[in-house]
Design a protein around this nucleic acid. Structure first.
Lengths: 348, 348
DNA sequence: GGCATTCGTCGAAGCGCTTCGTCGAAGCGT
DNA sequence: ACGCTTCGACGAAGCGCTTCGACGAATGCC
């Protein structure tokens, strides 16, 4: 593997000149630059990232920190990652996904102090997240996807859960529903302080109360089976419910199956609206799910841009963005039973 | 950030001794090692990965190369990644996911010559993959997940598509089916030489022929809608078909929906078996899909282990592993119509 | 025409670590 | 008591690059 010295020798210049020709930090005459360029591709030279990083304290590598164990990269995370990687590339950076194991904090600590990355994007942020406390005390720029309970002064990009819930309730209220239940993530995720679980539940309880509706919340593990079980129990104990807001892709499928098998028509008797999901996932269901799509791509782009900005000028203002999910009305939501209904689509 | 020299000074030893205490490359007395240890965590010292890599030519970082644009990290890819990351960790390595953009080859080239990684695991290998040609000519160890058309001498881990198709046909034949169609990935993926598409199709055609069955193959884009359309067309032109082998998660959901809506009972009249999928995805369907689960975790583990072995001793024998998918019989496969059938499960 | 500028280039130092050659001190046998 | 080995620790070189101070040549000005 050719080194910079090889290039310098071949081009008949000094190593520092090669460096300047490469980085443009200092001016180099057109003629010299050309000679260097020729020498480089004659040797197939590639700068060694390690040496460069060591000398310049700048690697142009960003890490996307995510806990591998958890629910992992779900359907919506993919477009997040893709957008993030693309954005990084546009800025001449690399974005590596850095899965953390059981010892999240330790591994994060190591990553940061290893000097391997210029900055990081932190996924799956909990309301009380020890990684954040750690990062606060280091010099490495970072941005959260999600946010802690009190994200004062921290840069973050997150879903606007209040607006999302508002959108969901508006949609269902507009269809005449008055008994709306929330099918959320697991109790465990609530206990762990997983932001979406907590924030959606809070928004749901508050906004239903504002509208004078009862607030019925059920937690559910991340599986179709759990969805079935919870839905069965819910409609046994609360047969008056006519609409379900779900935030739990796997469980949603189970719930819909259970409702239909239990003899209730969807959306004739029960409407289902899956939030923080995506049309693509919704299309897998039959009838096709009405969803509110998580703004994965937007968050990925914003998150990376925010980090890069702070890497390049540490004093730049902190980015805080909240983006709501977009409604994609499909076949699982329709007028509440007894409403002056035009027949909803998808009814046999 | 404390350096090795700081530690050395505090411990009253030389820098090289600290290094030896840390790596164990040369013996260090118990007493000295302890002093170094104390100094280290007094200073919160973390070795700088860049400097270490530069000096030792060994970063303990492995890259998992995947084309971000493509179908991306599907449902089964998650457990693959998780297992791979975990395995790397067990060996004291880091596994970073390295998404490549449009210029796959260029980015791979850069990655390899940057010296940033010790080895790589290449995902989404095509039958004729320029990245592989590139990697062959470099010194960096790598292992393919998938394989090229003629993977002579290359280390790879892949799904055993022949055995998988055999398993699928055995299952369906055992249930009395004689008109079995294959619903595969898109034409585009076939044209691009995507291994699974090509190999499953070939195995399907060969094995149906061996069994004296007609070979009916349909390609289909990766979406529920495309699945619907293709299924509709298939059963219009070939009403005799009683079983569908699918390899296309999104399309499978659409196909099942279409079949049911078209008035055919699943599995009473048509059986559906989704291969290279997973029980988790199968559980989202109603009725629950019979699947053959891709051995994601096994492949991830094997792939990483193979690379690490070659990193540590370059002359180790080349690993080649083929693992079939596991059958998980659920509710979408049952006896062919007209067979001396006990009522299949899930029939109303 | 002489002096201050500017431009382009060079050399050397250093980033934080590993590694190799070396050397003193201790342990062994005779 | 002597040389021999073994053990543990040291110092210096070097990995491939960036960066800073410096310097010669070309340029500008009065």
């Amino acid at each position: 593997m050719a080194t910079m010295n090889d290039v310098a020798r071949l081009a008949g210049v000094s190593a520092s000149t090669v460096s300047y020709a490469l980085t443009g930090v200092r001016p180099v005459s057109e003629a010299t630059r050309e000679r260097v360029r020729v020498a480089m591709d004659q040797l197939g030279y590639r700068p060694n990232a390690l040496a460069r990083g060591l000398a310049s304290n700048r690697t142009r590598i960003l890490a996307l920190l995510f806990p591998a164990i958890e629910r992992g990269l779900g359907g919506t995370a993919l477009e997040f990652v893709t957008a993030a990687a693309e954005t990084a590339r546009e800025h001449g950076c690399h974005l590596v996904l850095w899965p953390t194991g059981d010892d999240e904090v330790g591994e994060t600590h190591e990553l940061v102090h290893q000097g391997l990355v210029d900055g990081l994007v932190v996924m799956e942020v909990k309301l009380d997240d020890p990684r954040v406390d750690l990062l606060r005390s280091t010099a490495t720029p970072f941005t959260l996807i999600g946010r802690t309970a009190r994200p004062d002064g921290l840069p973050y990009c997150d879903i606007d859960f209040e607006l999302t819930v508002r959108g969901a309730l508006d949609h269902l209220s507009g269809l005449g529903h008055e008994h709306i239940a929330l099918l959320s993530h697991s109790e465990a995720s609530l206990a762990a302080g997983y932001g979406p679980t907590v924030r959606v539940q809070k928004a749901f309880e508050q906004q239903t109360s504002e509208r004078g509706l009862p607030a019925l919340v059920r937690h559910c593990d991340e599986s179709a089976d759990a969805g079935r079980a919870v839905a069965a129990d819910l409609f046994r104990t609360h047969p008056e419910v006519t609409a379900l807001v779900t935030m739990n892709d796997d469980a949603t499928f189970g719930a819909v199956a259970e409702i239909v098998e239990g003899g209730r028509d969807v959306p004739g008797e029960v409407s289902v609206l899956s939030v923080v999901s995506s049309p693509r996932v919704g299309a897998l269901s039959h009838p096709r799910l009405t969803t509110m799509a998580a703004p994965g791509a937007e968050l990925g782009r914003l998150g990376v841009e925010s980090v890069i900005t702070r890497v390049e000028q540490g004093d730049s203002p902190v980015v805080r963005e909240l983006i709501p999910c977009r409604l994609d009305a499909q076949a699982t939501t329709g007028p509440a039973p007894g409403t002056h209904a035009h027949t909803p689509p998808g009814t046999p």
